[in-house]
Design a protein around this nucleic acid. Structure first.
Lengths: 228, 228
DNA sequence: CGGGCTGCTTGACATTTATCAAGCAGTTCT
DNA sequence: AGAACTGCTTGATAAATGTCAAGCAGCCCG
């Protein structure tokens, strides 16, 4: 019998097709944990003992080196993380920190590997999710290497526009300093980049982004399905 | 019965544990193709019809956007590529070009997906390989975002030193313009970066790199197992 | 064998981005 | 309610990196 507290994730693509028995084995020993904002819940270099799923809230994956830090990605409701490290039973390459009060489901990595070996539908879903995450990272790296910082911002603005239902005014989902880090620039430079995009149809008021001339912005940004 | 021309890959980790019957199904309709140097064999945006394996030679994965190009990685003997696109039956996010005369094994993607569903050992090996590639890309992106270009070069020099058996003098495996692109800089800047590393124990003569003071170079580069 | 081409290096200069500082607005805590 | 703190913006300057040009060495092709 499935614990009620995991019911919310049964319909996620990762779990939707597996047998009920597999789901029971998977969640045996799993638990839900609440974290306050700005808490580091995982540190790079640590072993990956759990697969994590964001039930609610917002989590930032980041890394540091030689007193420098970069934001790798931001995860929202229904996202999984630490999948590759879980499957390879290796240490985390990234740390994770809550940006908001968050509720996280933690599933023991050995359960994930056990069910992977026995439930073909789960195996297919795992490979699908791994491939999707890997491809997203390739797109991200192409974005970083092929585009200047203002181009990355322009394309981010367009991508959020689509993500939020093609509205012309929307709220940034994260603080600007986190966005700057994610896009590979300093907060000062992000501020200047937003200003430099004004002639291309972008207006900013705090967390509110308004696209005042979509066609001009698209011409400048040159979005590409192989990157964005 | 296994075609003799595929015997060379039977012992690769991806295939070593599967049943002989699975291997036969996998390689049904597969073929080996010879490519001359500098030939683009795959273009980004095309469907991923085959899983590719480098039997011999050298292949560069690269991407372009808005008349700009970047080198993503370089593959040598016994490397696979186009695995994530194969498993998700999606278009390629990268192009591939031979750097040398190369011999490539091409396995139909649908065979890969079919055997994945039926052979548990192969499924485990696929997930292992996907996780390894994904984690390598995360390390690469951390390298790009957290380090300056001269730091990336210093760490590359150290990594090649280890890859070539801890010798203090070795040959660069690729042309310097490809290396520059891979490290995210122009060939002019790579040349200057090599020169700027001289005080830190690096000497260059054409393709030959000599580490004249390993300790000094290590102190400068600050290698990190979570990146390199 | 010679001309043409390619890869690489170096110099000069331009552009992009980072760093540092200061100020402002909003939030949080006492 | 006020002080302290944080996020953000702007200005000035520094550093990193790109661009353009020229020259050289080695390789390839006719």
């Amino acid at each position: 019998m499935t614990a009620a507290r995991f019911e919310s994730i049964m319909e996620l693509p990762l779990f939707a097709e597996m047998t009920e028995e597999s789901f029971d084995i998977l969640t045996r020993g799993a638990f839900v944990q609440n974290f306050p904002p700005n808490m580091v819940m995982i540190s790079e270099g640590e072993p990956a003992d759990f697969l994590h799923i964001v039930q609610s809230g917002c989590v930032e994956l980041f890394s540091t080196w030689s007193n420098r830090e970069t934001s790798v990605t931001t995860l929202y409701e229904n996202s999984t993380f630490i999948l590759a490290a879980t499957m390879k039973d290796r240490m985390n390459l990234m740390s994770a920190r809550t940006l908001q009060k968050s509720r996280i489901i933690m599933i023991p990595s050995e359960n994930v590997r056990e069910v992977f070996a026995t439930d073909t539908e789960f195996a297919l879903a795992i490979v699908d999710e791994l491939s999707r995450c890997y491809r997203a990272t390739i797109r991200n790296m192409k974005n970083l290497k092929l585009r200047t910082s203002i181009e990355r911002l322009a394309n981010y603005i367009l991508k959020q526009h689509h993500r939020q239902g093609d509205v012309l005014a929307y709220q940034l989902p994260i603080e600007k300093r986190i966005l700057a880090s994610y896009l590979g620039m300093t907060p000062e430079n992000l501020s200047r980049a937003f200003n430099n995009l004004k002639p291309y149809g972008v207006s900013v008021d705090g967390q509110t982004i308004t696209i005042t001339d979509l066609d001009t912005l698209v011409v400048f940004a040159k979005p590409d399905v192989l990157i964005d």
